[in-house]
Structure formats: structure tokens, C-alpha cells
């Protein structure tokens, strides 16, 4: 059960972050084509959604450690 939850967490957060970054990335590249000096700000915006997947990762590991405490999936 826990293993399954971990898998769902990683897949879900991964997809969500990817989708969000797709949207932001497209807009950022567009803005950068107009104004190259926006690179720094663009990169910042671009990587914001990554936080989602990081949270997912942290949760996944907390769950996995629970799994090893209980002893097996």
C-alpha cells in the first residue's frame, strides 16, 4: 500500500510540475526573445513549479522510511 502511494505521489507531482513548467517555459522563452535581459527572471519563474515535485519527493521518502519501520510493504 505504502509503496503504491509513493509511486502515485511521484507520478502525480512529476506530471503536475512538468505541465506547469511547460506553460511557464513557453511564456518565458517568448518574453526572452523580446528582451534577453529577462533571462534571470525567466529562469526564476521557470523553476518555481519544481517545488511541487520536491514536496512529492520529500513525502515519498517520509513514507518509505515508515515502510522500513513497519518492516516490508
Amino acid at each position: 500500500m505504502i509503496a503504491l502511494s509513493v509511486a502515485i505521489i511521484m507520478v502525480g507531482t512529476g506530471l503536475a510540475a512538468a505541465w506547469a513548467e511547460k506553460v511557464v517555459g513557453g511564456a518565458a522563452v517568448g518574453a526572452m526573445a523580446e528582451k534577453p535581459e529577462l533571462f534571470g527572471k525567466g529562469l526564476t519563474m521557470m523553476v518555481l513549479p519544481e517545488t511541487i515535485v520536491i514536496f512529492g519527493f520529500a513525502m515519498a521518502f517520509l513514507l518509505m522510511s515508515k515502510m522500513s519501520e513497519i518492516g516490508g510493504p
Binding site: 519544481e50 517545488t51 520536491i54 514536496f55 519527493f57 520529500a58 521518502f61
Partner: peptide, 15 residues
């Protein structure tokens, strides 16, 4: 809180 947890990426990438 989200900012603080965001630093767990350090561990994430390392692992």
C-alpha cells in the same frame, strides 16, 4: 514553510 521545504531539493538531487 514551502520555502523551507524547498531546500529539501538539496537532498533530493544528492540522492
Amino acid at each position: 514553510t514551502a520555502n523551507i521545504l524547498s531546500y529539501t531539493r538539496l537532498a533530493g538531487i544528492a540522492v
